[in-house]
Write a protein that binds this DNA or RNA. Structure first.
Lengths: 239, 239
DNA sequence: CGAAATGGTGCCAAAAAATGACACCATTCA
DNA sequence: TGAATGGTGTCATTTTTTGGCACCATTTCG
């Protein structure tokens, strides 16, 4: 790895993780402890404000105020690029993903670090399925563009979200759910959410959601939703 | 002089002087002709548009528009981003792809137009739908490396696959299934497959699969696996 | 207190990158 | 034609970077 891109990687890691240790950083960027310390010195010379606490429970962290410059790309644009690259990485075509990551790192350095942390947090909720061979997209409805800001707010602030949902039989219901994750099984996108009224996890095709809105002030704690073992998630589906 | 600051010096000189020659630049920044030519190549890769006229009375000059460049992405990096976004578009997630495209358009504006044309030409030759979803599994570490060739064969040729599976309770069973999709729920990877013996979809944690092998000649038709509607995939999971 | 975890510095040999010199090519123009 | 100009390939040399290593200072926890 290049010294330049390693500096980018360190800044990104600091922005994403908040507080880390030198050794963790070294492992993450694939360099030695000594080199990471040198890099941090260089970054400080470049104007990055990096706090460090010595001793047990200490670590280094990037001052959120440091090196904030005006971004050429809008935050949603960067977010969209992040999703694209994550999907590509999930699909497994590596050389391109590494390059795309390097490019995004440069872009991210031009964004306010708290925004970048937010974007990464949303990204962590994305569950990306296989990029399948092209399917018939004709019946795929458009996703309401308002979903993006609504869900971003809901995910970041852990607010309940309310929307109208039309199921496969055309029935319309109003929902108030705790968004847990977004699931991409191309070409379809799903929202995985906990429905407090039904005391159950549910998921919703994004193109069947309308009128989404975050419910102000009604926050919730994130649940742990990973799949486990040999349980069939498609039990009740039409085949 | 540092390579980085020399690049800056070259850009500044080009901005100040308008048109100069390689030799003048070399004298100005205190480097050899060869090095300045290398630097100009690097700057072009970073998105600076530098015109050059060969022959008597020629010289190099910086395109005024590239003065607005802040994100200095290399050409391969932009290419990788283009591929990622194209793949996402092919996968059918429209609103986000539009945003990503808008971001890329801004980036492309900072690149030499002939480079962009080349990138687009290459891109048109890529068949996103045929990208194998399995090339990257090897660096998961915990997953049996033999899964790679077996699943790749199975996915691409639509062959049944046989393996031993150890479930959460430690029970070992032999499976013969039709692989349908890969599901990534970091840090775990899952195989989603149709089990003909059980007439049901099942999914398997990749790190609990051993001894995978494609069953020669026993092909199947891909089923439509995406989730449907408001069905709970986590019904039987510990919460 | 002692031990462990943490950031930080100095030193040095090995590895990697940058550099410069040179030969050469293609184009342009007087 | 010949000079001026941008551009490429190669290779030995020089410079920078890297990763151990030893060591120090501070902090927290038992």
């Amino acid at each position: 790895m290049n010294i330049r891109s390693r500096h980018d990687a360190i800044v990104r890691s600091l922005r994403r993780n908040g507080t880390t240790t030198i050794d963790d950083l070294a492992g993450e960027v694939g360099a030695s402890r000594r080199t990471v310390l040198r890099d941090i010195g260089a970054l400080r010379d470049q104007g990055f404000v990096i706090h460090s606490d010595v001793g047990r429970g200490g670590g280094v962290q990037l001052d959120p105020q440091s090196m904030q410059t005006t971004a050429r790309l809008s935050v949603p644009e960067v977010f969209a690029l992040l999703i694209s690259v994550a999907a590509m990485r999930a699909a497994g075509n590596l050389p391109f993903s590494d390059l795309a990551d390097a490019g995004l790192a440069k872009i991210e350095r031009a964004l306010p670090s708290d925004k970048v942390r937010d974007l990464r947090a949303v990204l962590d909720c994305l569950h990306i399925g296989q990029l399948s061979p092209l399917q018939d997209l004709s019946d795929m409805g458009r996703i309401d563009p308002q979903l993006l800001p609504a869900f971003e707010t809901a995910f970041l602030q852990r607010l309940l979200i309310r929307f109208d949902y039309r199921d496969a039989k055309g029935r319309e219901t109003a929902r108030e759910v705790e968004p847990q994750a977004m699931l991409i099984l191309p070409p379809l996108w799903y929202l995985v959410a906990w429905d407090p009224a039904r005391c159950d996890f549910r998921h919703f095709r994004m193109d069947r959601i309308s009128g989404p809105a975050a419910l102000d002030g009604t926050s919730f704690r994130r649940r742990h939703v990973p799949f486990e073992d040999d349980v069939c998630p498609f039990r009740d589906l039409p085949r």
